[in-house]
Simulated scan of single mutants.
Amino acid sequence: MLTLVIGGAASGKSAYAEWLCLQSPLPRTYLATMQIWDAECAARVAKHRAMRAEKQFDTIECPLQLDRVILPQRGTVLLEDLGNLTANELYSPDGAGAHTAEQILAGIEKLTLQCENLILVSNEVFSGGADYLGDTDRYLRVLAAVNNAAAARADAVVRVVCGIPVYYKGSETQ
């Protein structure tokens, strides 16, 4: 089953996605997309790894090339998050660049074949109504393309607003 969880900044989307994972069968794998740029990032990653270990997550760091991930076993996978992955692929010298959306979507498809439940977390885009220019607009358009294609493919799509999940497709009990 593929579930897309979207929401704005600090909406509760990550907490809800983790809650969904905790309702799903073991093993649990967390695909972390944050790139480690400095000591502060490294400390944050270490803190999050420790928190996830308590919840029986195995963590795989995946800041780029999602399509190359080989899961060690079936079960439930939480990918946190598509916004980071999109930025990494779009702007990193080793990233997919102009082919970012296609690369990420191919990776999602590959993951769905390797696990029973795949939960994707992503940022809501374009709901603010602002016009953006240059690289920001490019990033938002690529992330929107990824979100739209993932939503079309997903069994469930849920938007989290102020910690409240609202299902647009499927349901929590699928």
Rank of each mutant, 00 (worst) to 15 (best):
A87N: 15
T86Q: 08
L22S: 13
E61C: 06
A150H: 00
T173R: 13
R28I: 06
A50R: 14
T59N: 08
E89G: 11
V45R: 15
Q103V: 03
F126I: 00
Y167E: 03
S24A: 14
A150N: 00
V146P: 04
V77K: 08
L120R: 00
N123F: 01
A17N: 09
F126G: 01
K169T: 09
Q114W: 00
L71R: 12
T59G: 08
S24P: 07
W37H: 14
I6N: 02
Y132F: 12
G107T: 10
V160Y: 03
R153K: 03
A46P: 06
G107Y: 04
L79R: 01
A98P: 02
A149V: 01
T33Q: 04
G129K: 05
A96M: 09
L90A: 11
L64V: 04
T86M: 04
G97E: 09
I108R: 02
F57M: 05
Q56F: 14
D94Y: 02
E61K: 06
Y168E: 02
L113R: 15
E54K: 15
V160M: 00
M51L: 08
Y16T: 08
A43Y: 09
A149R: 03
Q65A: 15
A150Y: 01
L2Y: 07
A42D: 13
C62R: 02
R44G: 10
I164E: 03
D58S: 15
I36P: 01
A10Y: 12
